[in-house]
Design a binder for these strands. Structure first.
Lengths: 137, 137
DNA sequence: CTAATCAACTTGCTTTTTGCAAGTTCATAC
DNA sequence: GTATGAACTTGCAAAAAGCAAGTTGATTAG
């Protein structure tokens, strides 16, 4: 029950964004959906970073309440649900692109996914457009 | 002692960014420094949102360790310290701009600082350049 | 020169959030 | 009708956040 976010609303746009996705997991969920095309709970669970199941459920609920994604039954598989990004969620594409570029510039780790960074650097507009139109990878 | 971040390094640029500023406070600190020109601990403490002192100290240390800011004695006031954003920290300007634009588009609260949003919308390049050059407001 | 002040923290303690493991529900599949 | 799989929920321990009070080392005021 994460009901009360102690959000004294400062009105600042940065604070507004942080109240929605200012945590360790939300943007990774959105990344999986926007970039990798993941749409189900179980696929989100087995992502690269290993979110735990209760946190995933909590975050999905929060993101849904904030209007970044929707949850519906899968018409082809009635026991499964499909999560979809809304326009509000897909509109985070430019922010995600900036984040990728910033990290690409400063993350010197050997594991850094420089191929992914190069993709954004090479054609940022296409990267953003694909997400914003909801196209799959 | 926040030594161990349970950071299994996935190599993802998004995850890298989140490991540095993926919390409720870091970007607000950077906002205060980049946009409002705040440079001291006590001024950061009395910001709009009310961070508590131990958390502020912890975050400043972390951001310093990650190379986003530096800490030095104030030459004019030897009992005070001056925090300054590094190029790595100032390079978050485009990300901050995107965040402001996104929130400006979707935050319908009456407290929303639409004047600040309009400023970024009106001349985004100037907004970013001022931050990236370290110019004060 | 001594006391009060101030900036920048630190420490101790309570509350909240996270993480992990195990259990639940309900719709198929065998 | 038993097992399986998807999507969660629950319980509990560990970590992080929040709050208040205390510490340290300069000034500054008297």
């Amino acid at each position: 029950m994460t009901r009360k976010k102690q959000s004294y609303d400062s009105g600042c746009p940065i604070a507004y964004g942080l109240s929605i996705f200012g945590d360790q997991w939300s943007l990774l969920i959105i990344r999986d959906m926007a970039i990798k095309g993941v749409r189900t709970y179980s696929d989100l669970l087995t992502g690269w970073e290993g979110i735990s199941t209760n946190i995933l459920a909590q975050r999905l609920k929060h993101l849904e309440e904030c209007g970044l994604l929707t949850k519906e039954r899968d018409p082809d598989n009635w026991r499964s649900f499909v999560y979809e990004l809304t326009p509000k969620g897909r509109d985070l594409a430019p922010l995600i692109a900036e984040m990728v570029l910033w990290s690409g510039k400063y993350n010197t780790s050997k594991h850094a996914m420089s191929d992914a960074v190069d993709k954004v650097r090479g054609d940022r507009k296409q990267f953003e457009d694909r997400i914003m139109k909801g196209e799959l990878p």
